[in-house]
């Protein structure tokens, strides 16, 4: 009861005094005033802004020798050659016309021979299997008859028959050890027996 009474008296006092001394009523007083942050006066540019106290940079400690400089620039033939040198060891294969490096086999010819060799190898492994190998191998292609040879020739030989045509470049003469010509006889091939 009493504080309320005091409040009322305060209010009346405020209102009277404010209206007497020219202050606007508190209700109309400003709640908030926006004050922009004070802009500092533009400072003059100086190197110190950049450097300040200073910063660390990597720097060469020692002079690079001429040897190292040249190594970086030109490389070495053994390790990393930076200069482009023309290759003078490229030749043209007479059989197939492709290029190959001198001292090595011709890539094109080798691919051909390699694929043929793989086929023959597969056939050999398939046929002879894991029995003790005590005979030489002779490779015959489709449509080829067993060459007419004396009995001793056949004692140590195993025949592998390939189910394809003989390639043009695989000469038959390589198989002949004697000077006898291969026969033109129409004899029965071994597989057709039994």
């Amino acid at each position: 009861m009493i504080p309320r009474f005091i409040n009322v008296i305060r209010q009346i006092e405020r209102n009277v005094i404010y209206s007497l001394f020219g202050q606007p009523p508190r209700e109309l007083a400003l709640a908030y005033v926006h004050n922009p942050p004070p802009t500092p006066a533009p400072r003059k540019f100086s190197i110190k802004d950049i450097i300040g106290d200073g910063y660390l940079m990597a720097v060469p400690k020692f002079r690079r020798t001429i040897e190292r400089r040249l190594k970086r620039k030109y490389g070495t033939p053994e390790y990393n050659q930076k200069i482009l040198l023309p290759k003078t060891n490229i030749l043209v294969c007479k059989e197939c016309g492709h290029h190959y490096e001198s001292g090595r086999l011709c890539g094109n010819c080798y691919k051909k021979i390699e694929s043929e060799t793989k086929e023959i190898k597969a056939k050999i492994v398939e046929k002879l299997g894991s029995s003790p190998i005590d005979k030489e191998v002779i490779v015959l292609y489709e449509g080829e008859n067993v060459p007419d040879q004396p009995q001793e020739f056949w004692k140590g030989k195993r025949i592998i028959e390939m189910k394809k045509e003989r390639p043009q470049w695989f000469s038959k003469n390589l198989l002949q050890r004697s000077t006898q010509e291969p026969s033109d006889s129409k004899d029965v091939k071994p597989t057709d027996l039994a």
Binding site: E101, G103, L105, C106, G107, Y110, I120, E136, V139, P167
Partner: peptide, 27 residues
């Protein structure tokens, strides 16, 4: 025999080793 290089820039030396008198086509 020196085999052809798989890539011209690489230095790995491939080689073909064979017994004389083998039944395959001659290299």
């Amino acid at each position: 025999l020196n085999a052809p290089r798989p890539l011209p820039s690489r230095v790995d030396d491939k080689v073909v080793l064979e017994l004389r008198g083998n039944p395959y086509p001659s290299l």
